[in-house]
Computed example of a mutant assay.
Amino acid sequence: MSLVDGYGAAGADGSDVVELKKALRTANQTLNAILEHSPDLICALGEAGRISLISSSCNGILGYAPDELMGRDLLELVHADDRRQASAVFERATAHATVQKQELRLTHRDGTAVKMRWSAVQSPELNAIYAVGRDVTEELKKERELRHA
């Protein structure tokens, strides 16, 4: 049974509403734990690509605290050379609902490029795109070193 189903079936005594509130609280705690502890960059993009939710990992990956990025256009963080590609990816996610393993660089606060591998899914019901980016900078560096060895 989904949370919505439980809400629609609320009994006269309110016990179903209490259960729904408990389930929503648990879901919120789970989401917060994921956002706090994931090594990947997790974000929700609202209207016009503005960041409406972002994981704490942005601090280690990009050098910004989450509250510094809330409300900013994600494209502002994309490396200048990748912005056209990033715009196309955003349009594809909006139109087709999913994007898998797309590599785009973001710019760290110190100006260095951070190579990210992205997957994203659109939620038309919530008017948002949910994206997960993994920093693959070191992984790609090691691959290059192995090829040269």
Rank of each mutant, 00 (worst) to 15 (best):
M1W: 11
S2G: 01
L3M: 10
L3Y: 00
L3C: 05
V4I: 08
D5V: 03
G6C: 07
Y7M: 11
A10E: 01
G11E: 05
S15A: 01
S15F: 04
D16P: 00
L20F: 02
A23T: 01
L24Q: 01
T26I: 09
A27E: 06
Q29H: 04
T30I: 15
N32M: 13
N32P: 06
I34K: 03
E36W: 02
S38E: 03
D40N: 13
D40G: 07
D40C: 11
I42P: 04
A44Y: 09
L45H: 00
G46A: 03
G46F: 02
G46L: 00
E47D: 13
R50D: 03
R50Y: 02
I51L: 05
S52I: 13
S52Q: 13
L53A: 11
N59V: 15
I61G: 06
G63A: 09
G63E: 06
Y64I: 06
A65Q: 15
A65P: 06
P66I: 03
P66Y: 08
E68N: 10
L69H: 00
L69M: 05
M70F: 14
G71V: 06
G71N: 09
L75V: 10
L77M: 05
L77W: 05
V78R: 00
H79W: 13
A80V: 15
R83C: 03
Q85E: 12
S87Y: 07
S87Q: 15
E91S: 13
R92I: 11
T94H: 12
A95K: 12
Q102P: 09
L104I: 06
R105A: 06
T107D: 01
H108Q: 07
R109C: 06
R109F: 01
D110V: 05
T112L: 06
A113S: 08
A113I: 01
V114A: 02
R117P: 05
S123A: 11
E125R: 15
E125H: 15
L126Q: 14
A131K: 02
V132L: 11
G133W: 03
V136S: 09
E139M: 07
K142Q: 13
E143R: 13
E143V: 11
E143T: 10
R144V: 13
E145N: 14
